[in-house]
Design a protein around this nucleic acid. Structure first.
Lengths: 219, 219
DNA sequence: CACATGAACCAATCGAGACCAATGTAGTGA
DNA sequence: TCACTACATTGGTCTCGATTGGTTCATGTG
């Protein structure tokens, strides 16, 4: 369950990305947002307070709430860890980590990984699939049995929880692509279960290349 | 018959495994747990006290009890990051980063790197050489121009500043080995200046293998 | 007596709605 | 056409009741 602020940010990201929300554009009224996000007005107002504090929106009594100039700049210059950066890091880290995991994973690790794989395969909806996808990649990293590595992996994943990342994935995700990802996941997990480091590294790299292509457009 | 704390832990484990309890998620109110676990509220509160003491949950009057960020990573013990772990991570990360840097480094990056290399070559003493060594590796990572990567690199380096690491290096460092390292550094920087990704990756891997051998004994 | 139990109470927070003041808009009349 | 009025809309504020973690205390229970 998302809180009001996250929902609101997602809404704004979507609007700016779609181009319907240019600087100065009028946002829905608070009472309208209450219905759209089915959240109490107090929560909506708290979320807007934060956005106003950040300078993203401007509020005027009797007129409404409007996007500021900053909002646009932030949208097309997400300097703060862009999805491209994240995918670059994932491509650097995850393939060798998968190879390492293939060497040192325990049966319990493989069981956990398989559970994530199967649950992801059984998930039709975006949110559920994304959740299991993240869990699967994390479980593979855990199987490498290196605490420092997990620490760094989590640093990467906190960046991955930024709103821009979520809306980007939501925009580019389709049932067909999810099926494709699941097939790739299956290949990775098979390589892990076969204790095949090279195979694990290669299939992971192929998968992430595919994800990067889908997320960022053909490079 | 289980006591309240055990039941509560079982409940949380189930929730985290099922994926419904992510960090920050709100868990049932104390009065609800009283019914669910059919235990007196005092016992529930005592169990929650322990969980709060462990940093697994956060309680707020009027709001509720929430899972903390730590809740997820309590499974894999914090692991006091051994030098072996650090070298494993460096071997995973630094070679591909060097390859990336070879592609995207600017001349200014290469200049900074060269300064570090030369200063290290001119350092006879352990402390100075170590300092320039660390600066060189960081400068190479900086040349990859990826903020998130630098973030993770710094996570790695904070682990590297642990006392055990320092004393290990001091014990195993000799003038001869430092000369050897400097030769390897030179090879890496040459590959970077030649814009040779494969060469940079290979020389970096060779170097780190050598460092790992010296630090940890022949593997 | 020592400890657990259950109930009542406290303080912080939240949610729903009423109300206020600023603003915008439609209608009216000269 | 233009000034004026009445009404609707909108962000800001306030209050009241419900919820929730924290605390106290009488009552069992061994």
């Amino acid at each position: 369950m998302l809180n009001a602020e996250q929902s609101l940010r997602a809404l704004l990201d979507e609007g700016t990305a779609k181009g319907s929300l240019v600087p100065g554009a009028k946002l829905p009224t608070e009472r309208e947002l209450v219905q759209r996000l089915s959240a109490p007005r107090s929560a909506i107002r708290r979320a807007l307070d934060v956005l106003e504090e950040e300078g993203l929106v401007i509020r005027q009594v009797g007129r409404g709430t409007f996007l500021s100039e900053l909002a646009q700049r932030r949208a097309d210059a997400p300097a703060d860890t862009s999805p491209a950066e994240i995918m670059q890091v994932r491509l650097v880290i995850e393939p060798p980590v998968a190879a390492l995991a293939a060497r040192v994973a325990t049966q319990a690790d493989l069981d956990r990984i398989t559970i994530c794989l199967d649950s992801g395969g059984a998930s039709d909806e975006f949110e559920a699939f994304e959740s299991w996808d993240a869990k699967l990649h994390r479980a593979i990293a855990e199987a490498a049995h290196n605490g420092l590595l997990m620490n760094m992996f989590d640093v990467m994943n906190t960046a991955r929880s930024l709103p821009v990342w979520g809306s980007l994935k939501r925009r580019t995700s389709t049932p067909e692509r999810r099926r494709c990802y699941h097939a790739e996941h299956t290949a990775i997990v098979e390589a892990l279960c076969d204790r095949d480091p090279d195979g694990a590294e290669k299939t992971m790299r192929t998968h992430l290349d595919n994800v990067a292509d889908n997320l960022l457009g053909r490079r």
